[in-house]
């Protein structure tokens, strides 16, 4: 079971005067999981719906495994789709929901049930086969929806913010499970989300979208540590905005000299984006200030430091942060990673 290549070329879509997609290009390698990430209205859901055939493109081309399916109706595309929520048929049992796609394909009853149970086993819900949607938790419902989408052995799996209606703990759990199952079945998958943590955790590659185009497409590490634009940097993680002076391809921020991601930046004053993880606590350093807040995030903590005229965020292991309650004086430095100019 291997996935197929999916390619979207020059997709355009507008609703009245609003441009939802403005010449979007995206290719998914066979078996790959690509997450589309972006704020609402950026066109990520439209992209997914065009691939599913639930909407028409105004222009552009969609190919799956080399075949042009731009004008194939959605019910002939063989896509498995998982919706945000509430997509299970409420009058059918879990088993019948999962078997429904095969019923539409006129598979024999025994074959349908066998396949449905196989899928339910994959998502760990065999016990619930006889129940109805309203008897399941939100997380269980989404697992069933996933099993239903996979039961038809889809060419491509489409996930439209499948975790957004769930609470935080279930969300993380189900996210990892979706990834496990996707790797197991090997289906090429497009995952749409507005949650950057989710996208970075689950995807082979992440496409950050803005105004109907992909702003940057790359591995999670790339996106996070080498954002191509300030929009990506700010969308993908918390960022400090600090003033500095650019000179000869590097920037001086309060005494820390940092390399620039784009060495061609003209000299002068600039605002640069610095990740909290790049700000570290040192016994003595160029930046000094007072801790005004400590936020525990689990294994790591984030402290807010007042530098007098501005504040910066620094992320550090919780063991170190406990030694710095609010009010402590602290010295900081900035790791010389390449930085972006805002």
């Amino acid at each position: 079971m291997t996935g197929v290549e999916v390619s979207l070329r020059g997709l355009h879509r507008r609703y009245g005067s609003v441009v939802a997609l403005d010449g979007l290009d995206l290719t998914l390698a066979p078996g790959e999981l690509v997450a589309l990430l972006g704020p609402s209205g950026c066109g990520k859901t439209t992209t997914l719906r065009l691939l599913a055939g639930l909407e028409d493109a105004d222009g552009g081309q969609v190919t799956v495994a080399g075949a042009d399916i731009t004008h194939v109706p959605s019910n002939k595309r063989g896509m498995g789709m998982v919706f945000q929520a509430y997509s299970l048929f409420p009058h059918m049992t879990v088993r019948d929901n999962v078997a429904f796609g095969l019923k539409l394909r006129r598979a024999a009853r025994a074959e349908r049930d066998r396949r449905a149970m196989e899928m339910l086993e994959l998502v760990g819900l065999t016990e619930q086969a006889g129940r109805y949607a309203h008897q399941l938790s939100g997380g269980q419902q989404q697992r069933v929806a996933l099993a239903r989408a996979l039961a038809i052995s889809p060419k491509v799996l489409l996930l439209d913010e499948p975790l957004s209606a769930l609470d935080a703990k279930v969300r993380a759990q189900l996210r990892d499970e979706i990834r496990r199952i996707q790797l197991e079945v090997g289906t090429t998958t497009l995952f749409v989300t507005h949650d950057q943590e989710e996208a970075l955790a689950i995807a082979d590659r992440v496409g950050v979208m803005r105004d109907g185009r992909i702003e940057q497409l790359g591995t999670p590490t790339d996106i996070y540590s080498r954002p191509a634009t300030s929009f990506v940097a700010e969308f993908v993680g918390l960022t400090n905005r600090l003033h500095g002076t650019v000179a000869a391809g590097s920037v001086n921020v309060r005494g820390c000299v940092l390399p620039l991601a784009d060495p061609a930046t003209p000299d002068g004053q600039a605002t640069v984006l610095v990740r909290p993880e790049a700000v570290t606590v040192v016994p003595s350093g160029p930046l000094t200030g007072t801790v005004i807040a400590v936020t525990f995030l689990g294994a790591s903590s984030r402290i807010t430091v007042d530098l007098g005229d501005t504040t910066v965020l620094a992320q550090l292991p919780t063991s170190e942060a406990t030694a710095l309650p609010a009010g402590s004086a602290v010295a900081l430095t900035i790791r010389p990673d390449p930085v972006l100019v805002a």
């Binding site: 599913a52 055939g53 639930l54 595309r77 896509m79 919706f83 048929f89 019923k103 539409l104």
Partner: peptide, 25 residues
């Protein structure tokens, strides 16, 4: 709308949607 779209992506025609989903519901 999700029920119609789910039926559609699973391969159902308009008639099948009304026959198996919309009608019984």
């Amino acid at each position: 709308a999700q029920w119609r779209e789910a039926t559609e992506t699973l391969g159902g025609s308009a008639w099948q949607f009304w026959r198996y989903v919309g009608g019984p519901l």
